[in-house]
Design a protein around this nucleic acid. Structure first.
Length: 247
DNA sequence: AGCACA
């Protein structure tokens, strides 16, 4: 019995923050953060999502959970998940997030990125900015999202998607009718899911009727592929029910 | 490729 795990070089020790790269750099920051929030909130409460557009940090993001288990699950289930046509690469973040450190009481302002190496003297002269509390959670602030689904190819995801095959009374149509969506679901979220399939054209939602959407493809072969792939996909607690739209 | 806290 070897207790030696194959801890290869690039591993980082568990952290409640995950570091994501290989993100699609064309996506606007605000949308990116919202979508990440949407996708990852299924694994636990999210304290913060950070992303930057500087050269050095493009295509990367940090998602801060309120505990490390959520982060672990998120990595296990979402690493390599296709997201805006690219596969997310996810690891634990290398260091503790500020929002966590502030809650900890271990926060050190980053102007002076000094290590704490005082051996006998404490300096308390600096302003303790304790007034920050964790009330900044954006968990309920963001609209609907995903379970985990098998979009592009082999998504490393065991259980979860239970394709319900509804009797489709409507004949094939290049437009799909999606039902049972959480009311907060945004077109953007649906677009992210459906745009992975060939022939995707657009998502339309009806403000007056929350919970449903129309998704248009170039032809009905393509809409059929998307329908079968995403049938029963979970957005928050809800399984999408997809049928052909009535003509 | 790239691990920060606008």
């Amino acid at each position: 019995m070897e207790m030696q795990e194959a801890n290869q070089g690039s591993e980082v020790s568990p952290n409640q923050t995950i570091y994501i790269n290989n993100l699609n750099e064309k996506v606007k920051l605000d949308e990116l953060k919202k979508s990440l929030n949407a996708v990852f909130s299924q694994f636990g409460k999210i304290l913060e999502v950070l992303a930057f557009k500087t050269l050095k940090h493009k295509g990367q993001a940090w998602v801060v959970f309120d505990n490390a288990d959520s982060a672990s699950t998120a990595i296990a289930k979402m690493n390599d998940f296709p997201f805006y046509d690219k596969r997310m690469r996810i690891q634990y973040a290398k260091t503790k997030s500020d929002v966590v450190a502030k809650a900890d009481g271990t926060f050190v302002p980053r102007e002076k990125r000094k290590r704490q190496e005082e051996k006998g003297g404490k300096k308390k002269k600096d302003q303790h900015h304790d007034s920050t509390q964790m009330g900044m959670a954006m968990n309920s602030a963001y609209p609907g999202v995903y379970g985990t689904a098998p979009p592009l190819s082999q998504v490393p995801y065991p259980g979860g998607v239970k394709p319900i095959l509804p009797e489709a009374p409507a004949p094939p149509n290049n437009i799909l009718f999606v039902q049972n969506l959480p009311h907060e679901t945004t077109p953007m979220v649906l677009q992210m899911l459906f745009c992975q399939y060939q022939g995707f054209k657009e998502v339309r939602m009806v403000e007056a009727k929350p919970g449903i959407a129309f998704v248009e493809f170039a032809d009905e072969m393509q809409s059929t592929v998307a329908m079968q792939a995403l049938q029963g996909f979970k957005i928050q607690q809800n399984q999408m029910l997809i049928t052909y739209a009535k003509k």
